[in-house]
Write a protein that binds this DNA or RNA. Structure first.
Lengths: 365, 365
DNA sequence: CCTCAGATTTGGATCAATCCAAAAACGAGG
DNA sequence: CCTCGTTTTTGGATTGATCCAAATCTGAGG
């Protein structure tokens, strides 16, 4: 009847300090270490013991303390994710893809929005270091110091770059072959008889912009179209597409097709054509990049090079998991293959001397 | 010349174990405690000491260990954020708003996407508890157990509900007055002469859906339009809007206006009208909710009730900060006032006997 | 009954910080 | 030079888990 030290749990005690391994151990009549092993699903503990301990865990309403565990085990099951524009639907889809993989792997992620500012990005990275994240998914902000990646390596913080990349290979990277994407668009348009194809591109200097421009240049050259080859640089917004296409259509001879850096620009370009009383796909072909949901539903439906944001997110997260498990493994680059979805916004060329031929490429909804 | 214990730092040592308070203390010739005080910006330390310690911190490349600090101080500077559809642009904007406040407050956030599954949500919440987050921002998944909120309170985990809410007040909440938003839309349409106004709504049973329906019912009643009052329930997607409006326009007499649960539905509805050869804003008025970026750029430009996702995110984060600072303070509900942006998709009613009058309300770009 | 290998269990040290009561240093006044 | 009251600084305990080497338990074989 006397108070025995083996029965420490009183109803109010749980309020005083949270239940710990020690409490479970006392309740189940085993040691702290055994409880720890049960929690981590070790095969060392006997089945009867395991059951007893699990019952105590239930009974006392124990909550695992990951912070304490991480302190000793130096593994946090935590990942940092930096994007530069979370308000952009593309990143929403990408983050959803990341989340799906992390959920499976029992990881959680810190998310931050750099707003394309290297300073904000830097601050977040420092914070992530303090949090001792196991790894990092980084869409580098425009103007990121190329030395950053090697600095992260010095900190031995696994980092997977996503969509854009800076610094020298080898590094881990997940993205899309933007170069190929633009080439597909040019090839398709040329097949449809177009020659005066303009590229409406971005003015930033990161890898994703460069790759698109390279793709455009090379495809045009391959088709012997160096003479009509033309890039307009500027912001990659709806309005920029809207304005640029209207300026272009005043010219003579005017372009018969435009390829846009992303779908927002392309949708803007279509509106610009309509504003001039022209019909996209008839008077001027328009092809976008990303294939956001809106593309298939616009009028006319926008042809677009799909870049699969959800899949990129999944691949990036998978890569991070792999690098965390094997920090010294060889770096990997996962480059997804984009796919042109042909819809109504790019028809055969009717403006040029070239006899209009029927397009027979794949047509998607 | 003999190795003195006061100079412990050798170049390779930093690789062996990470630099700790102890190392800084030794380097600066003070105690662990003093270094800790400096790190936390305490006013107790003398200026000369502070400078010396800070120099040592720089010299040794020390990185604060938040995990260890949190273990003792039981404060993590960490917030959990659960949304149900991160791929939706609305949430992208909201998360950006949250992020901006947290960045200022030196907090970081764990983000998870419940995909509107209470199970996924539950699992994330448990994980957040294990991480000992200081608080929670929760957009409850459809079907969330109303008891959840009080359970969180039992765990003494501050929780701010966002956009939707479950359980019994008082609780912390940040959202928009959806009821008022719909009422504004109805009032405007009635002013323009419309009477047969249909509401295209959601089929879910959470607070945000209910509020919209209530707003519609009451506004219609206030205008004596009980007899023509009509709600269509279904998913809240582009396609649902597209389909529903086409079915409605087959009827006789047909509605002269539709108000939609969100902008995606409204954009779909406009496409549906165009598919039938009708002109939105002329043959049938369309008003959406949210005022996403796309709304102003569609053709015709969509009238929409702005719900300010970025601002909601900011308010929610601010509320969380307040509740963490004062856990027993009275709960607060921040309800933002929505604002109807009138554009081309809702003109005067031309179909009815009522003499069409000129709309003189505010017109926005 | 003893031995020994294999299966379980354990306690003490450790991770890197904060808390707190007490000690030390300091400066002014007697 | 000695108090006395601030201002600074300090060491030991504490937080809640994991690691690891050693202790204990088991059961089969001799």
């Amino acid at each position: 009847m006397a108070e025995s030290p083996e029965t420490p749990s009183s109803p109010r005690e749980s309020a005083r300090h949270s239940v710990t391994l020690q409490d479970i151990a006392a309740h189940a009549g085993v040691s702290r270490s055994t409880v720890s092993l049960v929690l981590r699903g070790s095969s060392l503990v006997a089945d009867t013991t395991r059951t007893r301990v699990q019952a105590s865990i239930q009974a006392l309403g124990y909550v695992y303390n990951r912070g304490a565990a991480a302190l000793r085990a130096s593994r946090t099951f935590t990942l940092g994710v930096v994007v530069y524009d979370i308000a952009n639907p593309f990143f929403g889809a990408m983050v959803a893809g990341i989340d799906s993989v992390l959920h499976r792997e029992n990881y959680v992620s810190f998310l931050a929005n750099s707003e394309d500012s290297p300073q904000r990005q830097q601050r977040f990275l420092e914070r992530m270091r303090e949090q001792r994240v196991d790894g990092l998914l980084l869409c580098p902000a425009e103007g990121t110091d190329p030395a950053l990646v090697s600095r992260l390596a010095d900190w031995s913080l696994p980092c997977v770059q996503v969509l854009r990349h800076v610094g020298e290979p080898p590094f881990d990277y997940a993205g899309t072959d933007f170069e190929l994407g633009v080439r597909q668009a040019v090839d398709h348009l040329v097949t449809c008889g177009h020659r005066r194809i303009v590229f409406l591109g971005g003015d930033a200097e990161h890898s994703a912009t460069q790759a698109r421009h390279r793709g455009y240049h090379e495809a045009m050259r391959a088709h012997g179209l160096d003479d009509v080859h033309r890039v307009i640089r500027g912001p990659v917004t709806r309005r920029a597409g809207f304005d640029a296409v209207q300026r272009l259509m005043q010219e003579s001879p005017r372009p018969t097709a435009v390829i846009c850096h992303n779908d927002l620009m392309a949708l803007g370009a279509m509106l610009g054509l309509q504003r001039l009383g022209l019909t996209p796909g008839q008077d001027c072909a328009v092809i976008g990049t990303d294939d956001i949901e809106e593309a298939a539903l616009s009028l006319p439906a926008l042809s677009s090079v799909a870049t699969h944001p959800y899949a990129i997110g999944e691949e990036a997260a998978r890569l991070a998991m792999r690098r965390i498990a094997d920090p010294d493994g060889t770096r990997e680059q996962v480059i997804l293959t984009p796919r042109l979805h042909v819809r109504d916004s790019c028809g055969p060329c009717t403006a040029d001397a070239t006899p209009p031929r029927r397009c027979t490429d794949v047509v998607d909804i």
